[in-house]
Nucleic acid binder design. Structure first.
Lengths: 269, 269
DNA sequence: TAGAATACCTACTCATGAGTATGATTGAGA
DNA sequence: TCTCAATCATACTCATGAGTAGGTATTCTA
């Protein structure tokens, strides 16, 4: 005799139904998508497919697939509710399993965040590798990296990648993540320096410029959840255009000086 | 007979000494600075002065000063450890008082974050007001706002302002904060539109451009704690320069096309 | 100098959530 | 069919931390 797998409403088992005023005012938003390989497929809203557990009853198979499903579920939950407002019970419930099952695939919550972080970061690192041997001026290579970067940040792992904070992690993990983030930062700075040298990028402070570019792109993770009117790729493209051109017009005769001075009076808006 | 005010080591009272692996690996970093008016005085590392409680025993006075000290202590703690990793006991301990004392000045933790948020935001709103009647092209007015913006983000309230997330707050508070943030966003967009119209800003998508600018500046809050080699004002200035000019060189004969193609071979780095 | 506020503390309650002990079920291979 | 390992559930433990009850001390006011 076993309990059967009917979801919910066991004595208290799956727990955490009917909390208090608890956060999480984002709507449900589909369950898991188990099949495709983990390192993100960006685009807009991921197709809400099913939990591998629900889909197939075969055990002993799909270990890796299930593990990835756990990570992906975590990423979505973090994305919606933040790291601290997501409990492992939440994640388990999303997958229609229980918390120990989640712990069967990952050792702890911190690891879960870390895996999400890696999943988000990987395509960016790949972009650096891809771009390394291209016969292009540095600015073009930088742009290519930034495009991948922006797309990654807009992916379902974007939040986890960008917001995986030292503040939330053990010192060891914190160092590890900082190292990886620093790699990216240094990569961007190097491309900027190369660009300044080969003349494809205007003279600038590589460090501050890298901070500005990465910051603008990182911030996508904050507003993309609310405003998905563009795909990650489209946003990245728009940003690259902005970075390239700058605010000051490029037409001759510096139009800033031509610009009409503003009336002093304050008019109704 | 009363317990006296000797700190710590009561049966368990002040609690939270000697936790587990608990986060918070940032060094101490002075206590409170009570005197100056709240809405931030940016600059570099705030002078670690003393708790008003420690400084003066006169009660019934300085209520507002103490309240501000609580808020400022909270801002610093959030800045160092994040909202969720900061307990009200931590904040109280910093001020050398107990948790109920903190609750005597603020109603709850969410309010505390909200007050920090407001304190961070205020100088930005002030900047918009200041700039409103200046007889300058829109780009110059935008730059002025961005300078204040960057300085505010680098202030001790920067983290709270930038990271006050809907995810951590009640729906009502979340809406309130979103409204205020949206005001700023719309203000930037408007300046951009005006700039495009008066010719001081190159034609662009105001929405995406505003996102890029604000994102770059917001992100300062993430790295400024670790790297205070420049003041907030210096960073803001550097960013404005970057935004204005863009990556593409402005010298005649578009040097991008002149730029040497990169050798295909991969050389050791 | 007796209330009345004000300001602050001790000592709780209580819910949450990370993580675990232990056992049941199932499929694969001997 | 028997065993073993993989997989997953029930039902816990335990620490944390938000928030409170109720009291004490201090200063102001009448």
């Amino acid at each position: 005799m076993h309990a059967g797998r009917c979801c919910g409403s066991l004595g208290r088992g799956l727990a955490a139904r009917g909390r208090r005023v608890r956060r999480g005012y984002h709507t449900p938003g589909g369950r898991m998508s188990g099949r495709r390989p983990l390192p993100l497929a960006a685009g807009k809203r991921p197709p809400a497919s099913d939990s591998p557990w629900r889909a197939s009853r075969e055990r002993r198979r799909d270990r890796e697939i299930k593990r990835e499903a756990v990570i992906r579920a975590a990423a979505r939950a973090f994305n919606r509710k933040g790291y601290h407002n997501t409990s492992l019970d939440d994640i388990a419930a999303t997958l229609e399993v229980t918390k120990p099952t989640v712990y069967y695939y990952v050792s702890n919550k911190e690891q879960l965040l870390f895996q999400c972080f890696l999943a988000g970061l990987e395509p960016i690192r790949a972009a650096f590798r891809e771009v390394q041997d291209l016969a292009l001026p540095a600015r073009a290579r930088l742009n290519a990296v930034l495009r991948h970067y922006g797309t990654a940040v807009a992916s379902e792992f974007g939040w986890s990648m960008v917001r995986a904070e030292d503040q939330d992690l053990s010192p060891a993990m914190s160092r590890h993540i900082k190292t990886l983030k620093s790699e990216i930062d240094q990569g961007i700075r190097r491309l900027i320096r190369e660009g300044v040298q080969d003349g494809s990028i205007a003279p600038c402070d590589p460090k501050m410029t890298a901070f500005a570019l990465a910051g603008a792109l990182n911030w996508i993770a904050h507003w993309y959840r609310e405003d998905q009117s563009l795909t990650g790729a489209e946003i990245a493209e728009a940003f690259v255009t902005i970075f390239e051109g700058g605010l000051r017009p490029r037409s001759a005769s510096q139009s800033a000086t031509r610009a009409p001075l503003r009336r002093r009076v304050r008019i109704a808006r």
